[in-house]
Amino acid sequence: MKNNSETSAKSLKREEMVKFAFDTFYKNGFHATGVDTVMEGTGISKRTLYKHFGSKEGLILATIDYYRTNMHEIILRYINSDPNAKPVDKMLRIFDFLIERAEEGPFNGCFVMNAKTEYTNKGNEIEASCDAYTSGIQTLIDVALKEANLPNHNELVVQIMMLFEGAIIRSKVTRSGDTMKMAKNAARMLCEYK
């Protein structure tokens, strides 16, 4: 029978592998990063890696889940940080979040959007996991806009999500938060127009 400290140590090692793989995939890309790189960085054997994740795709799924869980909580806290904000202003804070991240330093885009791009038509589970993350972001926007009671609410949610995703992609090219600021202004105008 395994004791709690042994189980905890295995869980910690798995978490360490996920965090290292996340950082490496985010910096170098998914196809450009081999399993050997993750093994070298964490000091684990290929057998241990496959025991925990089954395959490289299993490891990628674990990193997407790690990103989705952490990012959802961070964004939710961020957009709700001002309890007096009006619903539209709360929703617009999602763009402020992006602007701050872009201006902090090297911006590699959205981890999940990067995975989706590299695995389109190549990995159904990876695509589905990416779609779940995107759906979560869209739900955050949806909740804020429902509170605002704007007409054509569903259409507006999709339009703002397009601005959000487009700003992320464009900012990878420009290496600047300016694109995100323009997307925020466009989102504000859409809400005022409705």
Rank of each mutant, 00 (worst) to 15 (best):
L59V: 11
A62F: 01
I64R: 04
I64P: 07
I64C: 03
Y66E: 12
T69G: 10
N70A: 14
N70V: 12
N70G: 15
H72G: 01
H72P: 02
H72M: 04
H72Y: 09
E73C: 08
I75K: 04
R77A: 10
N80S: 13
S81L: 05
D82N: 14
P83E: 06
A85F: 03
K86Q: 13
K86C: 11
D89E: 12
D89Q: 11
K90C: 00
K90W: 00
M91C: 07
M91W: 01
L92N: 08
L92P: 09
R93P: 12
R93Y: 08
I94C: 00
F95W: 05
I99K: 10
I99H: 09
E100R: 14
R101V: 15
N108M: 12
N108Y: 15
N108C: 10
K116H: 10
K116P: 03
E118K: 06
E118L: 02
E118R: 05
Y119K: 07
Y119P: 04
T120I: 15
G123V: 09
N124H: 15
I126D: 05
I126W: 06
E127A: 13
A128E: 14
S129L: 09
C130W: 01
Y133T: 06
Y133K: 03
S135H: 13
S135C: 09
S135W: 08
G136F: 06
I137G: 00
T139P: 06
T139Y: 11
T139G: 08
T139Q: 13
V143E: 12
V143S: 10
V143N: 10
L145F: 07
L145S: 06
A148Y: 13
L150M: 03
P151I: 06
N154Y: 13
N154F: 11
E155H: 13
L156T: 12
L156S: 07
V157W: 00
V158S: 04
Q159F: 05
I160C: 01
I160A: 00
G166K: 01
G166R: 00
A167V: 03
A167E: 01
